[in-house]
């Protein structure tokens, strides 16, 4: 009988024992992945408002806005299963804050690559499904046109026979979701920050697998399903490690 009392006493005592925090400075560092995104047109770094790039179809062009979503950012395990590390990210090529993203809660281990979508997957691509931030509300895709969000706004100017015109490569709707898989050995070590570097080559949007021509395919593609789909298909390989 005495022993029962002793067990209860010990149980109560241990239940009430405060967890002792490690002394400051000795905490286990978080296991994180740092996604660094850069932008080039082939070898030329992306700068705003400069007519220094040329599309495959031969138009000189400049860029003044490049904002988009990545969604379902996942590490690919050796057995091809996925570990999702972030549901979505809003990216702005001209905002350094969005081009270095720290993601925590990453299981340590060996991975063979990274998988994500350019755009929002159907679960996220519903009107008002994202938190109402200024970025998100300005990316809304009108309900009249299917709802959800712009996947990307890629805007700038191109020159045609000496004249400058605007272009608006706006993508949205579920059919234009762009799946991306990048393969590379990635080792996430417990308690470390692992940097991942990837680059968007903006010229790829205009050439592979199909040459995109502002005059024949469109300089304003929102709502033009054929043009949007053609442009989206070119997005599969815009990113490289």
């Amino acid at each position: 009988m005495k022993s029962i009392y002793a067990i209860i006493f010990i149980a109560l005592f241990t239940a009430c024992t405060k967890k002792v925090s490690p002394p400051p400075g000795t905490e286990t560092p978080a296991t994180e992945m740092v996604l660094n995104v850069s932008y080039h047109a082939d070898q030329v770094p992306l700068v705003s408002d400069s007519f220094i790039y040329t599309t495959q179809a031969g138009y000189q062009y400049s860029v003044n806005n490049l904002i988009y979503y990545l969604s379902r950012i996942s590490l690919i395990k050796l057995d091809s299963s996925l570990v999702e590390v972030k549901d979505y990210l809003f990216m702005d090529a001209f905002n350094a804050n969005t081009n270095k993203v720290v993601m925590g809660g990453i299981p340590a281990g060996n991975y063979i690559g990274l998988k994500f979508n350019i755009g929002l997957d159907p679960k996220l691509n519903r009107t008002d499904s994202l938190p109402a931030t200024v970025d998100n509300i300005n990316m809304q895709w009108p309900m009249m046109m299917g709802g959800g969000y712009h996947f990307m706004k890629f805007e700038g100017y191109f020159k045609d026979q000496g004249k400058s015109y605007g272009f608006n490569m706006h993508l949205g709707t579920d059919t234009c979701l762009i799946p991306v898989k990048l393969y590379k050995a990635i080792t996430i070590t417990e308690g470390t920050k692992t940097p991942i570097f990837m680059n968007m080559n903006i010229n790829e949007w205009f050439r592979n697998p199909a040459v995109f021509d502002f005059n024949t395919d469109g300089n304003y593609i929102m709502g033009n399903v054929v043009a949007m789909k053609k442009f989206a298909n070119n997005g599969v390989d815009v990113f490289k490690f």
Partner: peptide, 25 residues
Amino acid sequence: GFQTFFTERGDCFHCHGYPLFTSNT
């Protein structure tokens, strides 16, 4: 009018989207 405002017919929404009716750009 809503259709004109919120589709490419009028394309007002890119700068005057809901709910603020401004893009703050």
